[in-house]
């Protein structure tokens, strides 16, 4: 089952915003297939009613007081920006709709 098609790899690359090359599609399709086959071993464990572990520490309710902390200056915030205009991050035109 874990074999993965070229089309599926292309779909994953689109979801992950990776403009992969045609050549990479082939390489990744075979490599991902092998890796997925190997990790699919986890499916052999009978774990029906075992609770999943999402966190390695048994902590709950870690909250912060609602107090303002100094952040970055506008200059610091924008310093690493590839492009700036009117003190905002300038980015290429956006095609999709807001979520």
């Amino acid at each position: 089952m874990p074999a993965i098609s070229r089309d599926e790899v292309a779909h994953l690359a689109r979801l992950a915003r990776l403009a992969v090359t045609e050549e990479e599609l082939d390489t990744f399709a075979s490599q991902l297939g092998v890796i997925l086959e190997s990790v699919a071993k986890v499916g052999e464990v009978a774990a029906g009613d075992i609770p999943p572990t999402s966190h390695a520490v048994p902590l709950t309710n870690v909250f912060r007081a609602d107090e303002v902390r100094p952040g970055l200056t506008q200059r610091e915030a924008l310093a690493a920006a590839p492009a700036v205009e009117e003190n905002r991050f300038r980015v290429p035109r956006i095609l999709g709709e807001e979520q």
Binding site: R64, E67, V68, R69, P70, G71, L72, T73, Q74, A77, L78, E86, N87, R88, F89
Partner: peptide
């Protein structure tokens, strides 16, 4: 801990 005030100068509450 950044403030939430509306209408601040751009990228000053980050």
């Amino acid at each position: 801990g950044c403030p939430t005030d509306f209408g601040g100068e751009p990228n000053t509450q980050v």
